[in-house]
Amino acid sequence: MKWTEASVVPVRVFSTDEVSDLVRRDGAAVLTGVPDERTALSAGLRSLGTKGVRIGRQIEATQRNEAAQARAVAEQPSDDKGRKRAFTLATERMPPHNDGYAFGDFAPDHLFLWCERPAAVGGDSFLVDTSRLLDLFAADPDNADMIPFCWNVAVDHSEPNYPQDRLQPLVRLTPRGRFQGRYHPYLSAADGPTRERDRTFVRRWEHAVLSARDHGPMFRLEAGDLLCIDNYRMLHGRDSHNDPRRRLCAIWGWSTDAVSLPEGALDINDPWAAAASSTGA
């Protein structure tokens, strides 16, 4: 299946000095031998080099915390389209996504996932390269019409109950020249006369992304691994597991290449609280 060519297994390295070039070239890398979260934060910041602006832990992914977040999400009402924000439990395979998609332009441009303890069984990771996905569409005459749509037609990137301030295309070059390709499970066509037509394009993008996830290779993060990701380019997620002792920390990083830099912490249950007073990076 051709979409699996967009699935990526990152190179494993032992030195922070190698991470920056690999992330720039491949979109991701795994730094091994990271003993604790403090070292992971330091390594992530070093990998950003002179462009590093801010880094910090966003979430600790455990079944306990996942359950608490799921309860918080469940208490929120449906939006005007009848949609309700969901949360992927440990026993479910994650949808591919860029971290922080609910925050729009305030999402981090770099993501670091530090594994303290992997699941005994399951929980393997996957990566989908949206730039490679775009190349695959371009090379297929039956899908060539996806290219102008992806670049030029604005769609709704909002989560239920968290509307973003403007519509944007699926892929773009950021003001600082970074490629950005996005996907999350709430993507929808914009309201208007072409909504039904645009919906078919969004579904084709979704089909390709999910095919790459479901049929492409996965890889395992072991204890002490730090997965370093270009969060603008790569979609990520993990397979299902049922191990309450699994612990992984998501660390968000912003560089001077980021579209916008939030001043305060970004809250998964209140996405715009900190972003409202933020500035461009």
Rank of each mutant, 00 (worst) to 15 (best):
W3V: 03
W3T: 10
W3P: 08
R12Y: 10
R12T: 08
F14H: 05
L22T: 00
L31P: 04
L31G: 04
V34A: 01
R38P: 03
L48D: 09
T50S: 10
T50Q: 14
K51A: 14
V53M: 14
R54D: 07
R54K: 14
Q58E: 13
A61M: 15
T62F: 11
T62P: 12
Q69P: 00
R71S: 15
A72I: 04
V73E: 12
L89D: 12
L89E: 10
F106R: 01
P108G: 08
P108Q: 08
D109H: 13
D109I: 07
L111H: 05
C115P: 01
P118D: 07
A119Q: 09
V121L: 14
D142H: 05
N143P: 00
D145F: 00
M146A: 02
V153C: 11
A154T: 06
H157Q: 12
E159V: 01
Q168K: 13
V171F: 02
R172A: 11
G181M: 07
H184K: 01
A190H: 08
D191W: 03
R197G: 08
T200W: 02
T200F: 03
R204K: 12
A212G: 04
R213N: 06
P217F: 05
M218V: 13
L221P: 08
E222T: 13
G224Q: 08
D225I: 07
I229M: 15
Y232F: 15
D239M: 12
G253I: 06
D257I: 09
A258S: 14
I268E: 09
P271F: 05
P271K: 01
A274Q: 12
G280P: 12
